[in-house]
Amino acid sequence: MDMSILRTEKLQAGYEQHTVFQDLEFAVKEGKITTIIGPNGCGKSTLLKTMGRILKQKAGTVFLYNQDLRSLATREIAKRLTLLPQNPVGPNELTVEELVTYGRFPHLNQGQKSSIADQKAIEWAMDITKTISFRHRELGSLSGGERQKVWLAMALAQETAILLLDEPTTYLDMVHQLEVLKIVQQLNRQRQCTIVMVLHDINRAARFSHEIVAMKEGHIVALGSPQEMITPEVLKQVFCIDARVMLDPRDGVPVCFSYDNLQTEKETIGGEA
């Protein structure tokens, strides 16, 4: 048995009668940024949610430091792992600082006032996400990009070793996408955070990940470094596209600069799970 920080064993999950995946085996590499890519409905969000105990598995086990997730108190899990859902929503009247303070919940004893350590974590989280300058503004008054950084700050205030991010850049403009991913990179470099995220943009995945995992129809079809994964062959297999890929002359990171349907014209259609 390997000592993975987070791994799944014969995991089966889904919604009501519908099973999204079964017998899924996946181990997250400690201290790395892992990105899950794949077409809509392939199960990448479902996998993330099940690993983050947001969704209850139908069968199988998720291990956090070799402990069954179900055997741990949810509050203990929240000290080690957090998940930022896709498009989180909160009350408009809440201020940035208040929301970030919520992130300290798992570290507080009930009813206890926040300690110096809590205050430090809150300041740090707002600082690294550059939300500190508008800490007193209300959520309702923020732009989509600003709001996403505030949610990220809340997750960071939890000070967990593992961060699961479900499409953290969706609906953001190019600059904010870059900002969010730079924060993720900085976290990984400075605090050795283990990060697992779902991204749709394969070029961002290539640039910001150590490892890419490709899912399709509930299976992990390939995994490896960006150089191994962002290739015409893998992209054809995963997305059924004819992708044209070259390496960025500056740093050798693969870039998919254009793509087209395969000759069969067969499109992958499905609702996002």
Partner: peptide
């Protein structure tokens, strides 16, 4: 009362914060 504050977020956020 402070738990009710957290309940104003989405269920997935509340769970992530370690609230049963």
């Amino acid at each position: 009362a402070h738990i009710l504050d957290l309940f104003q977020l989405e269920e997935s956020s509340v769970k992530s914060l370690g609230v049963s």
